[in-house]
Structures are given as C-alpha cells and as structure tokens.
Amino acid sequence: MSKFIQSVKQLIARILGQSSNTEDQKVELVKGLMGALELTQEVELGCDEVFEVIDKYAEAVVQGVDTRELMPLVYHHIEMCGECREELEMLLEMIELEAA
C-alpha cells in the first residue's frame, strides 16, 4: 500500500513538474530564488505601473527603440514578470498583425 501511495505522490510530483525528491525540490527552489535575487533591484515597478505604459512601450519596441535605455524600469519588470512579458508578447503580435 505504501508503495502505491509513493507512486501516486511521484506521479503528482511529475505532473506538477517537480521532483518527489525533497532535496531536488530544495535545490530547484534555491536556484530559482537565487536567479531572481541576482536580478532584484531596490526600485522595481509593479504590474499596474507597467500596464499603464505597456502600449507606449510596445510601440517603441516595434519602432526598434532601445527600450532598455529609454524605459529601464519597464524593461526590468518585463524581465522579472512572466505575466507582463506574455502580455507584451501578445500585444506585439497584435500590433504586427495590423501593420502587415
């Protein structure tokens, strides 16, 4: 029975994209966290502040502007936040569709 439970736990862990091995899990989180800490800045914009200007930012990207130079805090947030990055990508696809 315990073997069955172990198998179920391993299956769940695999589906969740994690290892059932707690040491591996710890290593993965530590690595992910340290990667994020490396990029962490004292001042960062939140998702709302980025949303306010993401249209302007997207048009700058399409125009080939160096957004890292022009809007560094937005650029940084896009690097840190997967959700805002995905929204920018989708917005860029829409802009490019209309321009085609």
């Binding site: 200007v53 249209d55 997207a58 959700e83 989708m90």
Partner: peptide, 22 residues
C-alpha cells in the same frame, strides 16, 4: 494619448484574455 488608441485598446483586450485564460 501616449500611444495609438488602438494599441491602448488592444492592451486592455490582452489583459482581459490572458487573465481569464491563466
């Protein structure tokens, strides 16, 4: 008016769609 109106409108549609999809 800091972008095209259509880009501004599209960003709202993107936020609506991706929030719900996630």
């Amino acid at each position: 008016g800091e972008s095209q109106f259509t880009t501004w409108a599209q960003k709202i549609a993107v936020r609506v769609a991706l929030t719900e999809l996630r």
